[in-house]
Structure formats: structure tokens, C-alpha cells
Amino acid sequence: MHSFGYRANALLTFSLTILALMCAMASLSDNLNSPSPTASVKVLNINRFLKKSTGDDEVGITLDISADLQSLFTWNTKQVFVFLAAEYSTPKNILNQVSLWDGIIPAQDGAKFSIKTKNKYRFIDQGSNLRGRDFNLTLHWHVMPKTGKMFADKLVLPGFRLPESYR
């Protein structure tokens, strides 16, 4: 009954149970945090706007992104992945989401930032529907925990419009 094997087994089971419980509690404690992030984005310039040889429209833009995501961080946060996507609808597609810029914020210190950047990923439509197109710029963030459930949310910044003609 009190052999080495049984004691080792009991010890292992107990420590694994405690570890699992602690992970679950750490993940649940994230729910107590009610973040209030802020963001603003400006389109500084349309660098180019053309129709590719494939027939798809492509835009090159310069963006000014500033955001304060510090309130997203808790003790169980490993990193925050943040990205800005252009979102619009066309006659063909009910929803288009094109990621323009993203970044990884490893610590709370870096969560308040302001950058001017060109689009990191190509802004290409499926087809030729971008002239005069209204679009939203949406800042999404995905909170990656040290352990447990992942959180995601977004801030929609509406009211952007592409030019009527290519340039």
C-alpha cells in the first residue's frame, strides 16, 4: 500500500492537479480586467492607386497610427498582437478585410505608441472596385495569455474614402 510507486503516483497526481488549477485560475482572472483602449488613425497620403495587369485595384498608403493599449495587459498576458485592417464591401464581396499593418507588443511599456508607416501588406482588391470606395480602418488586438483563453477585440474607425481616380 505504501510502496514507492504509490507515493510517487500520488505526489505526481497531486502536483499536476494543483498546476492545472493554478493555470485555470490565472486564465479566469483575466475576466476581471475591463480594458479601455483608445486609438486614432489618419491616412497621411495615397502613395499610389492603380489597376494591376491582373485587373485588380491596388492602393499604397501612408498611415499615422496612435493607440494606447496599456489597459489590455494583465499579469497573465504574454503579448498583444495588434493589427490594422481596411474593411469594406463591394458588389461581389459582402466583406473584405485586408490587413495593412501589424505589430507584436511584448510588454506594457510598448503598448502606448504612435507610428507613421506605409502599408506593410499589399492592399489589393479582388477586382476593380476601389475607386471612390468608402472603407473602415479597424484596429484589432489579440491578447495572448501566458496560459489559458485568448481574448480579442477591435475598435472600428469609420469614414475613410479612396479617391475617385487612379494616380
Binding site: N96, D102, I104
Partner: peptide, 20 residues
């Protein structure tokens, strides 16, 4: 997922992915 194009009506999607 970094790009999504969802078709009107049928709900079919085209998705592009990337590793962080």
C-alpha cells in the same frame, strides 16, 4: 489570418494566412 474576402450570398470565403 491576414486577409478575408467573403462572397455576397453564398458566404464562401477566400482567406490568406501568415505566421507572425
Amino acid at each position: 489570418v491576414i486577409k478575408v474576402h467573403e462572397r455576397e450570398g453564398s458566404g464562401e470565403v477566400d482567406v490568406l494566412t501568415k505566421g507572425d
